[in-house]
Design a binder for these strands. Structure first.
Length: 374
RNA sequence: GGAUGGGUUCCCGAGUGGCUAAAGGGAGCAGACUGUAAAUCUGCCGUCGACGACUUCGGUGGUUCGAAUCCACCCCCAUCCA
C-alpha cells in the first residue's frame, strides 16, 4: 500500500527525459503526465461529472477564492467537502487564490500580511492570506491544495519579480504552519517571473522541503512560448525527481508536449473549455473555429477518428448551427470534445513515454499541426 | 372616393437643409481567448484602382451654393371614414 501522496516515477523516456508517473491520493491514483480540467466554481463549465469521468478526466480543479466568495467554504464543508458537494469522487486540486492576485489586479491590494480584494460579485471587501487560503482549502477538502502565492505579470521587472518570489517563499512557510490536515497534499509554487536566476533560486529554495509535489506558477501569462520553455529548463532540473511537477495554467497541446519533455507531470488550463464555449475546437491539425462559414455544409465530424461524444454523433455543420443559434448544446459538445482531445493527448503521451517514443510522438504532432498553429 | 400616418443602406429603426455613407440594434463575416469576473471580448459590415473618389435614403421634376431632410406631381403601404 503506497504511502499517501507517494509519487511513483514509473519510467523516463530515454531520449527526452519525459516522465511517466503515478501520484497516489486519498481519492485514487493519478497517472501522469496528466491534464486536469478546471472547474473554478466546483463545476467544469457545461460538463457533468459523469461526462468528465467518461472522457477520461482523472482529477479536476476548483478555486479557493471563488468558492470562498460563493457559496462559502462552510457550506461546502457542510455538504461533505467538494467531493460530496459536486459529486466527484476522484481527486480534486484547489488553487489557492494566488492567481486571482494577478488576474483581479484592479480589485486588490497586496500587503505582506495578505491581499485585500474587492469582491467582483458585490464589491465587498475581502481578505486572503496564506492562513485564510489554507483554512478555506482545508474546509473545501481537496486532495491537493496549493500554497497562497503572488503571481506576476508579463512583462515584469526584476525587482518586482524578486519581491514576489521572496514573498511567495515567506508565504509558503506560513501556509505550511497553518496546515492542519494530513490527508491533503500542499504544493509550494515556484515563481521568479522570466528571470532564469530567480527561477532556479526559487526552485532550489523549495526543493529540499518535505512536500509531496511542486507547482510552477507565473507562466503562460502572455510571454512568448520560448521564454516559458526556458524557465522550465531552469526549474525542473532543480526539483527532486521523485516528486510531481505541476505547471499551472498550461495550456495548449504544444505547450503540453514541450512541458512534458522538460520534466513536467501535471497541467491544468481553462483554455480548452473557455475556447470551446466560444466556438473553437482542438484537432490534430490545429484549431477549428466552428462558427466560420466554411463549415456550414461540412457534415463530417469535428475531427476524423475522434472518440468523443460530439464526434461520434454530430457533424461540424450541426455544431456550427448550434453555435449560430446560441443553442446551449453547442458549447457543451465543444467542451466535451476539447476536454477529450486533451485527455487523449495525455493518454497518448503516457503510452509514448512508456515505449521511449516521445520523440516520435512529438514529430508526428508537429507534422500534422505545425508550430504556431496553436 | 376621403382623412391621417408612413416609405432610409440585408432586416428593424434614428435622422427633418451643410458637422450624413447616414445613430442604434439585429443578422452576417472575421479575430482573440493558457492556475476562469468570459455561453465573453474586439474588429469589419454601400462600391472602388479606398488617408481619396463614386453611387445611395419609393419615383420624377424643382427650390438652393448645398437636399434623406423643403416644394410639386406620381407610385406603394398601414389605419380610419364613406
Amino acid at each position: 500500500m503506497p504511502t499517501p501522496f507517494q509519487f511513483e516515477l514509473l519510467h523516463v523516456d530515454r531520449h527526452t527525459g519525459a516522465r511517466r508517473g503515478r501520484l497516489h491520493t486519498p481519492h485514487g491514483a493519478i497517472e501522469t503526465p496528466v491534464y486536469m480540467p478546471v472547474g473554478t466554481q466546483a463545476s467544469v463549465k457545461a460538463v457533468s461529472p459523469d461526462e468528465l469521468n467518461d472522457l477520461g478526466a482523472q482529477i479536476i480543479l476548483a478555486n479557493t477564492y471563488h468558492l470562498h466568495l460563493r457559496p462559502g467554504e462552510a457550506l461546502v464543508q457542510e455538504a461533505g467537502g467538494l467531493h460530496g458537494f459536486m459529486r466527484w469522487d476522484k481527486p480534486i486540486l484547489t488553487d489557492s487564490g494566488g492567481f486571482q492576485v494577478f488576474s483581479l489586479a484592479e480589485l486588490r491590494k497586496i500587503k505582506e500580511d495578505g491581499v485585500h480584494f474587492q469582491s467582483h460579485l458585490d464589491g465587498s471587501k475581502r481578505f486572503l492570506s496564506p492562513e485564510v487560503s489554507i483554512g478555506v482549502q482545508e474546509k473545501l477538502g481537496a486532495d491537493i491544495i496549493m500554497q497562497f502565492d503572488e503571481c506576476t505579470a508579463w512583462p515584469c521587472d526584476e525587482k518586482t519579480a524578486e519581491q514576489a518570489m521572496q514573498r511567495t517563499l515567506r508565504w509558503l512557510t506560513r501556509c505550511l504552519d497553518a496546515k492542519t490536515r494530513d490527508d491533503q497534499a500542499l504544493f509550494p509554487i515556484v515563481q521568479g517571473a522570466f528571470f532564469p536566476e530567480l527561477r532556479s533560486a526559487h526552485a532550489k529554495a523549495v526543493a529540499h522541503l518535505d512536500v509531496p509535489g511542486f507547482g510552477i506558477g507565473g507562466l503562460s501569462v502572455g510571454e512568448p512560448k520560448d521564454v516559458m520553455y526556458a524557465m522550465l529548463e531552469q526549474v525542473c532540473p532543480a526539483l527532486p525527481e521523485d516528486k510531481p511537477r505541476y505547471l499551472m495554467g498550461v495550456g495548449t497541446p504544444d505547450c503540453h508536449i514541450e512541458g512534458v519533455i522538460r520534466g513536467v507531470d501535471m497541467f491544468d488550463c481553462v483554455l480548452a473549455t473557455r475556447v470551446a464555449r466560444n466556438g473553437t475546437l482542438f484537432t490534430r491539425n490545429g484549431r477549428v473555429v466552428i462558427k466560420n462559414a466554411k463549415y456550414a455544409h461540412d457534415f463530417g465530424p469535428i475531427e476524423e477518428g475522434c472518440d468523443c461524444y460530439a464526434c461520434r454523433n454530430f457533424s461540424r455543420a450541426y455544431i456550427r448551427h448550434l453555435f449560430k443559434a446560441e443553442e446551449i448544446l453547442g458549447l457543451r459538445l465543444a467542451s466535451l470534445h476539447n476536454l477529450r482531445f486533451l485527455t487523449r493527448q495525455m493518454e497518448d503521451i503516457r503510452a509514448a513515454i512508456e515505449q521511449d517514443a516521445m520523440v516520435d510522438y512529438m514529430n508526428e504532432f508537429y507534422r500534422t499541426s505545425a508550430r504556431g498553429t496553436w
